[in-house]
Design a protein around this nucleic acid. Structure first.
Lengths: 338, 338
DNA sequence: CTGAAAGCGCTTACAG
DNA sequence: CTGAAAGCGCTTACAG
């Protein structure tokens, strides 16, 4: 579990002795305080390097009741959407001197709950949470009680009033499905994702709105839930192809699902775009190099990460500030799969 | 930089008072020590939940001179190879109760140096380092002085004697190039990567060996270094296509570079596989869905992560144990790009 | 500008 | 089995 440290550190005490000053003075010097004479500071700095001193941020944080870490909880590191988001978070947080503790839930409530505890125990200064799609009531209650800064990203939890940054998935879905309609499709499937998540519900709304706008009926048999993975996409496709009147186009929960759908088509000897138009959502980097290049809707993953980090920092600085919600507008990216 | 905590925690002291025992006893109860009566333990546990106590692992670690975090330093989170590796590390480390602090160097020595310091300051129990391809002498010296457990992954640093887990890239490259030769190619380029890194040097050796085995000469004009990104692949391709006698096949530093090369071909109106055979290295998930599906050599990213984590844990448990080197054997995966 | 004392929230010997 | 005291490595008032 934990491990005995067999390696001894040079302490500030030793630095102070070496420099011939008190511990308090050495502490001020290390932290570059203004209340210290240049001569003293230099003396201390010299001792530091000579002794190979390493600042113990953990001890400092404990004493000063601060934190220099923040927790980032995502659902799936293998999804390039989240890698991008992670990069955005990293860039923004590093400006403020934070170190990030990463946790992956694999979209499991139990794992999320455990990670939340771990982060608390590790005294993170705040948390950026991309909630699992199927959060239990108890977890949501817990998060509501939560008294450290938290911002939600990508998905919103019901009845939880927190800072939030995400995409307008409804508009995104509408764009995607509208595009397919303009291409002449009338039977359009909606594949992948879990109806428990707000992210799915919003897409569903956009999907329905787009169809209804042109007077098309919703056929629930074309709406197939499944895991948000390539595999999930394949399975959803297989199911929808068994429909007596199969769709000619598919709007996928996200790009990952769309990749699975395209692979599934090929496994059946069908050709994406020719035999079935496929549209994704996210515009991950792979979308432009897939076969065929994927038509999709950009959800600006990196930007979401950056904004979430900024919101968190602001919340940490001022816990009482008004709650913020940032909803980015998606963009349609037309390629060859549709 | 750091932030004042405005949220007060329930302390063990308060739990002890509430339960009517001493702090020491409460501490033992929390940690599930055997030297405590069941009745006392239950009393304490009850007080804990009633008060909403959260264990302060940081304070505990400070006092007991242990650590429950480990640092993972990678070069590029957007490379699916590293996402996979990260997953492997996570899975393995979580078994041992560690939390991971993540750092990304973007293959920059300065960033790596800074991250190493940050990790030390945060009292990580050990570090898994995927070194940048171009580590400065000073950095290498520093790592050699380093007195906390460290295992290197993916790339080895010259003259540094550490635990290491990686792939036999020479064999991997030999497999890839051998495959192209069997397909009848004679002018085979080697695209992407930096000659400063051991990972590149090994591939180069394999590339040369494969060519020499069939009596082909090495044409250095076909060996083009560039960034290990899609973009780098594109650029390397452009350069090699300007050769008066351009290659008919390309062995790419990794899959990411290969994707860039294929995109670059298409940008020029050429068709991967037909106009130029392309082979990658890593077998990231995207390789099977690219256009065309990419022939590549698997480098078992997730397994490398798992093994690195295991080695680190063993090193932490026994700092004096013999140094370990694990070299995995790659596997050729033939698809349509060659 | 510098130092002596107290304390962050825990755990570790050591008594009893 | 339980408690009083000391201490992990820092920082924070408070004197001077």
């Amino acid at each position: 579990m934990k491990t005995k440290k067999k390696y001894s550190r040079v302490t500030l005490q030793e630095v102070a002795e070496h420099a011939g000053v008190s511990r308090a003075t050495a502490s001020l010097a290390v932290r570059n305080s203004q209340n210290i004479s240049k001569a003293t500071r230099n003396k201390v700095l010299k001792s530091m390097t000579e002794l190979g001193y390493v600042y113990d941020r953990i001890a400092a944080n404990l004493r000063s009741q601060r934190s220099s870490t923040i927790g980032l909880i995502i659902t799936d590191i293998a999804n390039p959407f989240f890698s991008e988001l992670l990069i955005g978070v990293h860039h923004a947080l590093e400006k403020h001197g934070y170190t990030v503790v990463l946790g992956t839930t694999f979209d499991l409530d139990a794992k999320q709950d455990k990670l939340l505890s771990t982060m608390l125990e590790h005294r993170v200064g705040g948390v950026i949470l991309c909630p699992v799609s199927d959060s239990l009531k108890e977890t949501i209650e817990r998060i509501k009680q939560w008294d450290i800064p938290i911002v939600h990203a990508v998905r919103e939890l019901p009845d939880v009033s927190c800072d939030y940054v995400g995409i307008d998935y409804k508009i995104g879905a509408q764009m995607a499905v509208g595009h397919l309609i303009r291409k002449g499709h009338r039977r359009i499937a909606f594949l992948g994702g879990s109806s428990e998540s707000s992210a799915w519900q919003e897409r569903k709304k956009g999907y329905c709105t787009a169809l209804q706008q042109v007077g098309l009926q919703i056929d629930e048999a074309l709406v197939i839930e499944n895991a948000v993975t390539r595999e999930g996409g394949k399975k959803a496709l297989q199911q929808v192809l068994n429909d007596p009147n199969p769709p000619t186009a598919a709007f996928c929960f996200n790009d990952l699902v769309a990749f699975g759908v395209m692979q599934g088509l090929r496994d059946r000897g069908l050709v994406p775009s020719e035999d079935m138009a496929v549209v994704g959502l996210d515009d991950v980097q792979e979308a432009s190099i897939s076969n065929p290049p994927l038509t999709t809707v950009s959800s600006f993953a990196r930007l979401i990460g950056t904004y979430a980090a900024d919101l968190l920092h602001q919340r940490i600085v001022d816990p009482l500030r008004e709650r913020q919600r940032m909803i980015l507008q998606p963009e349609l990216v037309v390629r060859d799969s549709s």
